[in-house]
Design a protein around this nucleic acid. Sequence first.
DNA 1: CGAAGCATTGAAGTGCGTCAACAATCGTGG
DNA 2: CCACGATTGTTGACGCACTTCAATGCTTCG
Lengths: 239, 239
Amino acid sequence: MITTHLKKLRQRFAINAEEESAIRAAVADTRKIGADKVLIREGQPLNESLLLVSGWLARSKDLAGGERQMTELHVTGDFPDLHGFTLKRLDHDLLTLSDCTLAVVPHDRVRRMIERFPRLGRIYWFMTNMDAAIHREWALSLGKRSAISRMAHLFCELNLRLDVVGETRGDSYDFPLTQRELAECLGLTAVHANRTLQELRRRGLIALENREVSLLDRSGLESVAEFDPAYLYLEKRAI
Amino acid sequence: MITTHLKKLRQRFAINAEEESAIRAAVADTRKIGADKVLIREGQPLNESLLLVSGWLARSKDLAGGERQMTELHVTGDFPDLHGFTLKRLDHDLLTLSDCTLAVVPHDRVRRMIERFPRLGRIYWFMTNMDAAIHREWALSLGKRSAISRMAHLFCELNLRLDVVGETRGDSYDFPLTQRELAECLGLTAVHANRTLQELRRRGLIALENREVSLLDRSGLESVAEFDPAYLYLEKRAI
DNA sequence: CGAAGCATTGAAGTGCGTCAACAATCGTGG
DNA sequence: CCACGATTGTTGACGCACTTCAATGCTTCG
């Protein structure tokens, strides 16, 4: 059930059998939810965190005018809600972008787990710091990259993150977002996201049809994006 | 020396005498550095973290063209480099924006401190998650707010954060950034940051002279910014 | 006192937004 | 299984917020 999550952890850290079973034991329950729902509302009090077993989520913040900015995307194996363990409420909404399966991890179990295994505490702390690193890269995109470079960068990021958890087929992967949702990730309007996407297609860099992305020219795409995966901290490490 | 840092912690959490002395004992050394230096370079291996005793720092990422995007500002009492404890290297540069005094905290001391006081571990985890919350708010600004709203928002954020550590005088505070650096926080050119600043002045919302900002009409400014301080998690809490 | 950085202003260009219409696809109920 | 409304994707015309380039005065500091 949380095998994919363990794959994500093991990309960076050695996890022994004892630690693995502690992680598995932290899961209390499993829950399914449909696409386009608010999974967690900003400000809502939290005493459990949700691990994404399958599907796509987005962190979303909005302005009074109703416009939304996504600040991060989450895929199978991510623990999007983990920082709720310390924050006790979120500063943003968590939205489902597809049908999702979630593992419920009560906060008291997280706490007991990391008290028994302080190393897992540091590992999960690392994981939330990685989310912050992704936020910073998105801030760079939003502040300084052009629309086309921004979009190219997002597709590169997702390709690598999905590859880690075995959710790619070559340089292709499922991509359930509508163009409007894609636009909300990139700080663009849906109209301009559409034109930008067409420009990426015209240049032969990507294909996107039937909710599937293919990176047709990965190095060309990475070069348009100025993509450097260092911020994803993919290398094996001690902690 | 790290009294201001404790003030920041105590805004959110009760810290007892034993915990306080553990924190104080974690500091190995104190270091001074001048303005406009690279304090920590992206990728550099880290085995200690730096606590900002006084001065201003920025997290900065840059593109090949040499343009920079600041992703967060740090002031007296912040622990900007704490996430290096888990990440072991940064995905961005840390720049000094003024003369700074820093307390050096070796990672092995952090580790021993949180093993003796797991609650402090959770508190510092919380602190790095707060940085992520600030990143998300900046992403919203960069993606969806206009230049004037973005700038107003930044001045509101800093006013509150500085107030927590007693570094404001009423609604005024020292602000050492040049207009170019301010522009780099906001994803603008220096020219447009200048014009935006003048518009804020013209509307009677702020004054900025001699490296000091005054919020002349705080509620007007907050309204231009659509400022909601929830993302700063200022309320007292258990953990 | 001189040089370098910083703030300011003007004029002109452009990337992206806005508005509007229509085509294609999807989901749902009959 | 089709009908039909709603959502999504696409295109065009036009507008504007912000950029770019360039010049000038103002600080700051060695």
